[in-house]
Write a protein that binds this DNA or RNA. Structure first.
Lengths: 358, 358
DNA sequence: CGGCCGGTTGACAACGTTGACAGGACCCGG
DNA sequence: CCGGGTCCTGTCAACGTTGTCAACCGGCCG
């Protein structure tokens, strides 16, 4: 009656103790056999494995990791919105790179809310993630300064840190945006409508700066009259572009500063075409109310952009994830130089929409 | 020299022990204060909190969860490819639903490889996830049968379980696919090219069955001559559609069985239009080599489908994630009825491409 | 004044695992 | 037959936290 009676009450998952009992060995021997540590007689190992299978044993990673040093083998990723294909692609790259080293990715989305972001970061650190990758929506990261010194590699992805030194992977936003505008100007455009997402985001700011560079170089100083920031979602972008199109003297070209804005612009253009306010063919009928379809370049490549014939500023999103993961892994392996910043180049991809003339 | 000397060697994260030492209380009191358990004098609580802030304390969730019952507050999600916008959307829905209950999502992608899938499931179970949501690439889940009985709620998402009873959330694939085909037939089409992804995937099979239903009802028995399965990526789909277009007697309509296939088809159609093999306007010139642009319906809605004017079979992807999460959460709260299957309806969204006449 | 009560605190064990160490069995050479 | 080595196995403590229980303090009632 008394032998092992206590264990039977445990309806939960079996532990090493129970496997050991069934196999008739000590806990430690069971552990050794299951981990393949060696120094276990072949016959014993077989008995242990059988016992484990029989009772449905599964190592408790919580206990195991606690014992081994108190840190998990998870890596955390905090983004604004995982459903955004850009972040999803980045996450895919990270995951592939981690898998090779037996690490797993935990993702958390913040809906671009800095407070939620802080909470999620706290939760991940409590869970003792090995490393933390952040596409931050926040404009201040000083509170992360002590974390950085505490052995958890921190890598900023897509958006640079403020107030902390840390590894960072960025797109060359400024140059990319400049290239787009220069391309439009070279095509003869002077009136270029620039539509941006939340301008508090560093990526947007950098792209806006790039626009400014190119405009200045071309001597276009009043470009801000056609500049429309803070169109955060597709619907807002659509409305904004619609208003630009209806101006008395509308832009002959549009530059949209991320994939969502581009989507909104395409909707607006499409609708205007249906309404007859726009026409792809040039001055077909000077009397017609229809105006000429503006040129368009979008920052960020997107699915089916080729089918739609949309020129974009593209870059290697998955590579961005891989690079970020590698930076973190290097730190975990003891690399110890000062914080690095990797800037990935952009490419202007011509597909027609950016090459329309004024 | 001796007081607390041992602790100083610990370069890692401070523990409760150190917070307690600094605050001059016992470990247990520190724990009580930080968890807000009550029964702590106000002055003591303040001292403890100060000490914690001073040393940069962060509770070790591994230890905490181990002590509390050996299970984490993570929920696992296993998908074929998180970068697929469909899964990303589903994951977003799950995450939002979980966040409300303080649970966090761990995602793992399998690249549709059943073996990788099993490994990842094992890893997640070892990590003692509270629940496991699976969009499975595998065709057999009997090995999960004992897990299901062991207290970890299991929910199958998008693809049904085989060999286990478990909660499931599905799209009404069969009806949706049937609707698409009926719509095309009602539009006058008899020669419908059907292009599918891997036919071993249950979702694809269900859609194919739906196609068969509608074809039979209409007395079209030779539809399999224009049926092309196993085009797994965009490139393969493009090639496949291209070959269909070049047949001596090509289909007058296409039905593509998921978003990737649709993307491939759109590329093929676009290219053919550029090459002059196709023309949107009907029998403009009977002598011309150009053929009429076929009608197209795609299963799965996608970004910009409206701009492209593509008719699709749509459904609420985020809702799917939310529902799956809710099913799991209900189980965690003790709900104990037999396995439930929720089938979400589809909608035919007419945007023009599906309404072209033969 | 003794007993009791509420609030406050601490000692201790336990969660499941693994590292450090020790002990026994066996074989070999001397 | 003994000393030394190689395998194999077990005991014990520890990872950081929290539940259980007991103890202490002061005040208040009878």
């Amino acid at each position: 009656m008394s032998e092992g009676g206590g264990d039977r009450n445990n309806v939960g998952r079996p532990t090493l103790r129970q496997v050991a009992a069934v196999a008739g060995v000590s806990i430690k021997t069971a552990s050794r056999a299951l981990r393949g540590e060696g120094y276990v007689a072949a016959a014993t190992a077989v008995r242990v494995h059988d016992a484990a299978r029989q009772v449905g044993f599964r190592l408790n990673a919580l206990a195991s990791e606690l014992r081994q040093g108190g840190t998990s083998n998870l890596v955390g990723l905090v983004t604004g919105d995982l459903a955004n294909p850009f972040y999803a692609t980045v996450a895919g790259g990270i995951e592939r790179e981690l898998r090779a080293r037996g690490l797993q990715l935990v993702t958390a989305s913040t809906d671009e809310d800095p407070i939620a972001e802080q909470d999620l970061i706290d939760a991940l650190l409590q869970r003792r993630v090995r490393a933390l990758l952040i596409a931050s929506s926040s404009t201040d990261h000083t509170h992360l300064a002590d974390e950085a010194g505490r052995g958890v590699p921190l890598v900023f992805v897509d958006r640079p840190p403020v107030g902390v030194q840390a590894d960072t992977v960025l797109i060359d936003n400024r140059t990319g945006a400049g290239d787009a505008v220069r391309h439009l100007i070279a095509g003869g455009h002077r009136r270029i409508g620039v539509v941006a997402d939340l301008s508090r985001l560093a990526t947007q700011q950098a792209r806006i700066d790039g626009v400014g560079d190119a405009m200045s170089d071309a001597g276009i100083d009043d470009w801000r009259e056609l500049f429309r920031p803070d169109a955060h979602d597709v619907a807002a972008a659509q409305t904004t572009v619609d208003q630009l199109l209806d101006m008395p003297d509308p832009p002959t070209a549009l530059f949209t500063l991320n994939n969502r804005i581009t989507a909104g612009a395409l909707r607006a253009l499409q609708q205007a075409r249906i309404d007859g306010r726009l026409d792809a063919r040039a001055h077909r009928d000077p009397e017609s109310a229809a105006r000429k379809l503006p040129a368009l370049i979008g920052f960020d490549d997107f699915e089916l952009s080729d089918v739609l014939g949309v020129s974009v500023i593209g870059y290697a999103a998955e590579e961005m994830g891989r690079t970020a993961a590698r930076l973190a892994l290097d730190r975990l392996e003891g690399v110890n130089h000062p914080a690095q910043t990797v800037v990935l180049p952009t490419t202007l991809i011509e597909r027609g929409s950016g090459e329309r003339r004024p």
